[in-house]
Design a protein around this nucleic acid. Structure first.
Lengths: 79, 79
DNA sequence: TACAGAATATCGGAATTTTCGATATTGGAT
DNA sequence: ATCCAATATCGAAAATTCCGATATTCTGTA
């Protein structure tokens, strides 16, 4: 148990949506990141934090600019 | 001991430079963040990771857009 | 240079988080 | 209802974080 203040759930949801938009499975993305599927599952559920470098790598794997992800997080967190 | 792959040092250096540009001491920024000075010292030295939400808060406290920080990190990390 | 005070860095060890494979659960299609 | 893909959860060892107290480094000034 523990972690996710609600805002971390928002982060996970945004990252999950970006992944799904690309038609990737957690396992696919995990492979690109060199991590197990449970890693992706965990952060998408807001159970694990993503640090700056991880975000850069995830954004890169998803073929998006980090700022796109940030913009969406801020947008959703403000509701 | 441990953490900082070199890239985490870059993250810390960038954040330190942004802080200094604003004429803030670690203690000042720490106060804005509700954390001890050792927190700022630690991540600026690349000894502690900064997660996405923390970056948003730090950027906000420094009066800059998160993307400015990212851009600089990517720029420096690519050298 | 020598000093004072400000600024930053380091320590220690308890608490929290992360790790990853194995397993369980859920979801979608037929 | 069954099959299989996709995602979620577990556990317990390893790694990281936490923060105040203290040490060190830095800066200006006599």
């Amino acid at each position: 148990m523990w972690i996710h203040p609600d805002e971390h759930k928002v982060v996970g949801e945004v990252l999950a949506d970006f992944r799904k938009q690309r038609g990737l499975r957690q396992q696919d993305l995990a492979g690109l990141l060199g991590k197990p599927q449970s890693f992706v599952s965990s952060y998408e559920a807001g159970q694990r934090r993503i640090d700056i470098l991880e975000l850069l790598r995830i954004a890169s794997a998803l073929g998006t600019a980090p700022n796109e992800i940030f913009t969406e997080i801020i947008h959703r967190a403000s509701h």
